[in-house]
């Protein structure tokens, strides 16, 4: 029965990708990674400039997986309670309290989008940290649960004024950091500018088939998937070697141009990070119609699951994206399997 479930759900996942690719063009890799994150039940940090289609992408996914979708904009004056409740004076002239974005959809909340998360204060990051880790929230003397919630956040790496860097503990809660870049293909670029169907996002998203997945079935299916897709001892050893290489890249002869390798890495990938890597790798193997994880499955998610977890010396933080890319490529090239 479980094998049939895996096969059926894979068809749904492929249908999901096809539908999303119809409305968000030239983003096959981010779409595959977000699909992987959804089936791995991991939160996602999107990185990219403004206007590249991050919100459209998330709205499209939300429509396909169903459930509640909530969104909040990160601002410097945003406080944690703004996520929980909203106060206003009603028509009767009395003060009223209504649920904030987190509580609005109750347990049916499936996607919570935090736009420009690095503009919010650390207090807000702190609240989000708990919600992401435990999927619970205490408010009004009551414990609220969000069992199906996935947090998608985005941050603008270009602008640094009035922003607060997300602490490494909060970054580590995200399963993936996915870069969204404008496609380089001329035909796609032209289509994005001149094709009128891309001008109205609401109408565009409405063209996608809704509820391809059942958001409230994803947790159970994910557990089944993780149990079914296996990893051989050789692969486990390979994953451990990759982990060690993120901690001590010099031991594996990894070099990054213009960087003192002895000073670069303050902390490599965390155990939670490696666990998330393997969860994502299992999903990738399943999407590729395999029962076992291959090194190639790990490679497919290695950059997006590990890069944001590495802690570099402050002197190299300004070049984080570029250095992390080169470092992780060097690690994949240096570690052999078998």
């Amino acid at each position: 029965m479980s094998d049939k479930q895996l096969t059926d759900m894979r068809e749904h996942a492929q249908k999901l990708e096809t539908e999303i690719n119809k409305v968000v063009v030239g983003q096959q890799t981010p779409i595959r990674l977000i699909t992987t994150a959804i089936f791995s039940r991991g939160h996602v940090l999107l990185e990219g400039d403004v206007g590249v289609g991050k919100t459209t992408l998330l709205r499209a996914f939300t429509r396909c997986i169903g459930g509640g979708y909530q969104r909040i904009e990160g601002t410097i004056d945003l406080m944690p309670n703004d996520l929980v409740y909203h106060t206003y004076l009603g028509e009767d002239g009395k003060p009223h309290v209504s649920p904030g974005p987190l509580l609005m959809s109750g347990e049916n909340l499936s996607v919570f989008f935090f736009n420009e998360i690095n503009r919010a204060r650390p207090q807000v990051h702190s609240l989000l940290l708990r919600v992401m880790a435990e999927r619970t929230l205490s408010a009004f003397n009551k414990e609220y649960h969000f069992p199906h919630m996935l947090v998608f956040a985005d941050r603008n790496q270009v602008e640094k004024e009035e922003t607060f860097e997300i602490p490494s503990a909060a970054r580590d809660r995200f399963m993936m950091e996915i870069p969204i870049v404008v496609p380089d293909d001329n035909a796609i670029m032209e289509s994005l500018v001149f094709d009128t169907k891309f001008h109205n996002v609401d109408a565009l998203v409405d063209t996608i088939q809704a509820d391809i997945l059942q958001f409230d079935q994803l947790n159970a299916f994910s557990a089944l998937l993780q149990a079914k897709i296996e990893a051989t001892p050789t692969l486990r050893q390979y994953a451990l070697n990759l982990w060690r290489a993120t901690k001590t890249p010099t031991a594996y002869g990894v070099k990054v141009s213009g960087v003192d390798m002895n000073r670069l890495v303050l902390s490599g990938a965390s155990p939670r990070g490696m666990s998330m890597l393997m969860r994502a790798a299992r999903v990738n193997a399943w999407l590729s119609k395999r029962d076992s994880v291959l090194p190639e499955d790990i490679h497919a998610v290695f950059h997006s699951t590990v890069a944001h977890r590495l802690v570099f010396s402050p002197v190299y933080e300004m070049r984080r994206t570029e250095i992390a890319r080169e470092l992780l490529t060097g690690i994949v090239n240096a570690v052999a399997a078998p």
């Binding site: 990893a231 051989t232 050789t234 692969l235 029962d291 076992s292 291959l294 078998p338």
Partner: peptide
Amino acid sequence: LSHQVFFDTQ
């Protein structure tokens, strides 16, 4: 072949 020998549990 390598995948089959080293990584395929089935």
